[in-house]
Amino acid sequence: MATPRSTGDEVAEETLVGPDIAIRGRIEGEEDLRVEGRVEGSVSLTETLYVEPSGVVIATIEARDVVVSGIVLGDITAGNSVTLNKNSKHVGNIRAPRVIIADGASFRGDVAMGDEPMPTTRERSRATNTAPRSSLSSSRTSRPRPATRSSAAPSAPSRREGSGPRASAAPAPAPRRKKKDDDDVTVVIKHASMRKGEAPPEEDEPKRRRAKKSARMPARGRRKAGRKS
C-alpha cells in the first residue's frame, strides 16, 4: 500500500490526497504531502507540499517547500522555496527565501523574500481587501441581471395566452371572456333586433342562447345565421 516513491525506508513515504478526497481541518506532518483533491484549513509540514494540477488547497500553508501546480488560496510560508508552476493559481501572500514563479502562473499577493519579518497584518489586510474588491467589481460587471427583468415582459403575453384557451373553453364568466362574448352577442342581438322588429321577444331569447352556444364560431357564420332566421 506504500507509495511508489519509496526509496527503501519508511521515511521516504509520502501522503497522497487523491482527486476524489476532501479534507477539512488541520493537517500536520513530517513528510511530503501531495494533494490531488481538496484541502481546506491549514497545512503544516516539515517537508514538501505538492499541489497537483487537479488539487485545490484553501489553507494557510507552512512547509519547507511548496510546489504549486494547481490552485492555492491562502498564505504560504516556506522555509526553503515556493514554486508556482505553469498554470498554477495562487491568491495569498508568499514568504520564502526562494520564490519561483513560472511563466503562465497566476498569482496575486505579496511576496517577502529574505529574513525580514513578514509584513503581517497590514499587508495581509491589503491582500484580503483587494480580493473582495475584485470580487465586488466582478459582481458589478456581471450585472446582466436587469435583462432578466426585461425578460419578465414576455411573460405577460404568455399570461394572456394562458387565459385565452380558458376563455374559449367555457362559455361562462371571467371578465375577458365576457368581453369577447358580449361583443359578439351584442352584434348578434343588434342584427336580430334590427332585422325583425316584429319578432316576439320570446324568439329572441332562444336565438341569444344559440348565439352564445355558437360564440366560438366565426362571427360571419353567426351573422349569416342571424340573417337567415
Binding site: E13, E14, T15, L16, R24, E28, G29
Partner: peptide
C-alpha cells in the same frame, strides 16, 4: 490513486470522498 495518510501526518478535521483511503 489511493489516498494515503502517511505515518507522520496528523489530520484534525473531516475527510470526505469517493476513493480508497489508507491511514498510516
Amino acid at each position: 490513486a489511493n489516498t494515503v495518510i502517511g505515518s507522520t501526518i496528523v489530520i484534525d478535521g473531516e475527510i470526505t470522498g469517493d476513493e480508497d483511503l489508507v491511514i498510516l
